Amino acid sequence: MRPHGTIRYWAAAKAAAGRAEETYAAGTLDDLLEQVRRKYEGNATLLSVLKRSSFLVNSTPVGALPHGEIVLEPGWTVEVLPPFAGG
């Protein structure tokens, strides 16, 4: 059984998704992002933003770690942080 948690969209990701957050059941960050891509497969704007975004898992930056190695524990929170203009 995959643990449930919340994905939060910020800035351009929030605008493209049309919502600030939603819940999913996912075991890894890669699993979660694949579910989001499937749900929004017709939303080219959000898919593009996801490719450029960085992620926080429970307030910890993911950085360059492979998304398949980022395990999501029950009650996880993933923040989608698109690049911000102006540094």
Rank of each mutant, 00 (worst) to 15 (best):
residue 51 K to I: 01
residue 52 R to Q: 14
residue 36 V to T: 05
residue 28 T to A: 10
residue 52 R to G: 06
residue 25 A to P: 01
residue 70 I to R: 08
residue 29 L to M: 12
residue 15 A to S: 14
residue 17 A to E: 09
residue 27 G to N: 11
residue 19 R to F: 01
residue 12 A to T: 14
residue 39 K to W: 01
residue 44 A to F: 07
residue 40 Y to S: 04
residue 17 A to H: 10
residue 38 R to Q: 14
residue 47 L to W: 03
residue 50 L to F: 10
residue 53 S to E: 09
residue 62 V to E: 00
residue 7 I to L: 15
residue 60 T to W: 00
residue 34 E to Y: 06
residue 37 R to Y: 05
residue 21 E to I: 01
residue 16 A to P: 05
residue 68 G to T: 06
residue 51 K to A: 14
residue 42 G to K: 14
residue 38 R to T: 13
residue 41 E to P: 00
residue 33 L to N: 10
residue 13 A to W: 13
residue 35 Q to P: 01
residue 87 G to K: 02
residue 10 W to Y: 15
residue 87 G to Y: 11
residue 81 L to S: 04
residue 7 I to V: 15
residue 53 S to H: 03
residue 80 V to F: 08
residue 20 A to F: 04
residue 86 G to S: 10
residue 80 V to S: 09
residue 78 V to S: 05
residue 75 G to H: 06
residue 12 A to C: 07
residue 37 R to E: 12
residue 15 A to I: 12
residue 58 N to Q: 11
residue 38 R to E: 15
residue 52 R to W: 02
residue 80 V to I: 13
residue 54 S to G: 14
residue 18 G to H: 11
residue 8 R to Q: 04
residue 25 A to G: 15
residue 16 A to T: 06
residue 74 P to K: 14
residue 49 V to H: 08
residue 6 T to G: 01
residue 32 L to I: 04
residue 68 G to H: 09
residue 33 L to I: 03
residue 12 A to N: 13
residue 73 E to D: 13
residue 1 M to P: 15
residue 72 L to Q: 08
residue 62 V to C: 00
residue 1 M to N: 08
residue 55 F to H: 01
residue 14 K to R: 15
residue 7 I to W: 05
residue 33 L to G: 09
residue 35 Q to K: 15
residue 22 E to T: 06
residue 68 G to Q: 08
residue 4 H to Y: 09
residue 36 V to I: 15
residue 66 P to H: 11
residue 16 A to I: 09
residue 52 R to M: 07
residue 72 L to S: 09
residue 70 I to L: 14
residue 52 R to T: 14
residue 85 A to D: 06
residue 13 A to G: 10
residue 49 V to C: 08
residue 41 E to Y: 00
residue 3 P to H: 03
residue 55 F to L: 00
residue 43 N to E: 02
residue 43 N to L: 06
residue 62 V to L: 01
residue 56 L to Y: 03
residue 40 Y to T: 07
residue 39 K to M: 03
residue 4 H to M: 12
residue 32 L to W: 03
residue 84 F to P: 05
residue 16 A to M: 07
residue 61 P to E: 04
residue 4 H to D: 09
residue 28 T to S: 15
residue 66 P to G: 11
residue 82 P to R: 06
residue 4 H to P: 00
residue 10 W to L: 15
residue 63 G to H: 05
residue 63 G to I: 03
residue 38 R to G: 02
residue 17 A to W: 05
residue 51 K to H: 03
residue 8 R to F: 00
residue 83 P to T: 12
residue 41 E to S: 12
residue 86 G to C: 13
